[in-house]
């Protein structure tokens, strides 16, 4: 076992999948010689060579569109989009084609493609480097959306995503890239898609989060316990699509109170979908309206005002209190 950061776990996951299957190829901007702007692909060019670790021209639609062709041919491409904010040029290829080729061809063709992108704020970046666009992709039928929150899950989920027969959008919380280390097993293992993780047991309230918001949720849960004696169960979704409804239902039936946290803006966010589902299916279990903590419906500020924008443990605690005292 090695102590790895989240970005090292990405690297380890890619390396492991590439060693196991020579159909796995990587393509993206600055992923080869440079090892990726976050060093996620460090050393892979040296080990696997330029035919499998490909520095492409600067063109996201080109990267994703050609990766679709490769995937249909039978390779297992992993495309890196350098930042969340540079997915839009590839949006057409993702939503119009990657997501639909299985559907359009009635199952004759399929697209085993992974698109990796660092996402989210918290690093005081320039514009277009701090976005949380998961809802666009979760809204697109035919895509899977995976967002890990720790090194162990990152490696296992990435390997599972690469082996999945359908296109996966894999968002890596960049502010957690080097935030902490964790034991990560050497060698091959998968964390299955579509399975959430109970990150903290509790009995009074269910707190649902993913990606960068998981540590925030855990901190809020600790504070609720310490300050208010409220026992909070934290669910780390890990996969948004397909959703692990069983784990959510089990927890909510037990606690009857729910808070959902997302880093993205409020309107049309994935939290809205969770709340609708919970209201549809579990209304009679609820002791209080489901609360959500989100960013406001604005562009994420440049560095200086970022802290006011991003949901923090204080805001989550406030929502917990609202749900508990309803």
């Amino acid at each position: 076992m090695a102590q790895l950061t989240l970005v090292q776990a990405v690297n380890d996951g890619l390396r492991t999948a590439m060693r196991a299957d020579d159909r796995v190829v990587l393509l993206g901007e600055d992923i080869g010689v440079d090892g990726g702007v976050f060093r996620a692909t460090e050393g892979l060019l040296q080990e696997f060579g330029p035919d499998r670790v490909i520095d492409t021209p600067l063109a996201e639609s080109g990267i994703v569109g050609t990766a679709i062709g490769m995937a249909v041919y039978g390779l297992r491409p992993v495309a890196e989009i350098q930042f969340d904010g540079f997915l839009p040029p590839a949006f057409d290829q993702i939503v119009s084609h990657a997501a639909r080729i299985r559907w359009r061809s009635r199952g004759r063709f399929h697209v085993p493609l992974v698109i990796r992108a660092p996402y989210g704020g918290g690093i005081r970046a320039l514009e277009h480097h701090s976005e949380s666009p998961e809802a666009y992709y979760a809204h697109t039928p035919g895509l899977k959306v995976v967002i890990p929150s720790n090194p162990y899950d990152t490696k296992g989920l990435l390997i599972a995503s690469i082996r999945d027969p359908d296109p996966v959008i894999f968002f890596e919380p960049k502010r957690l890239y080097r935030a902490f280390r964790e034991e990560v097993p050497e060698g091959d293992y998968e964390v299955p898609l579509g399975k959430a993780r109970v990150a903290r047991d509790g009995s009074d309230l269910t707190l649902i989060a993913w990606g960068s918001m998981v540590p925030v949720a855990l901190q809020a849960a600790e504070e609720a316990e310490e300050r208010d004696g409220v026992s909070v169960e934290v669910i780390d979704l890990r996969t948004l699509v397909p959703l692990d409804w069983g784990t959510i239902a089990q927890s909510v039936e037990k606690t009857g109170r729910v808070v959902v946290v997302q880093e993205a803006p409020r309107t049309g966010g994935f939290a809205s979908e969770l709340i609708a589902l919970i209201n549809d299916k579990l209304l009679l279990y609820l002791e209080a309206p489901v609360q959500r903590v989100t960013a406001p419906d604005t562009v994420i500020p440049l560095g200086r005002m970022e802290d006011y924008y991003l949901p923090d443990a204080g805001r989550v605690l406030r929502a917990i209190r609202k749900a508990v005292t309803f």
Partner: peptide, 11 residues
């Protein structure tokens, strides 16, 4: 260069 990618790799 485009970050690390040389001009000859663009076209």
């Amino acid at each position: 260069y485009a970050i690390s990618v040389p001009r000859t790799r663009q076209t």
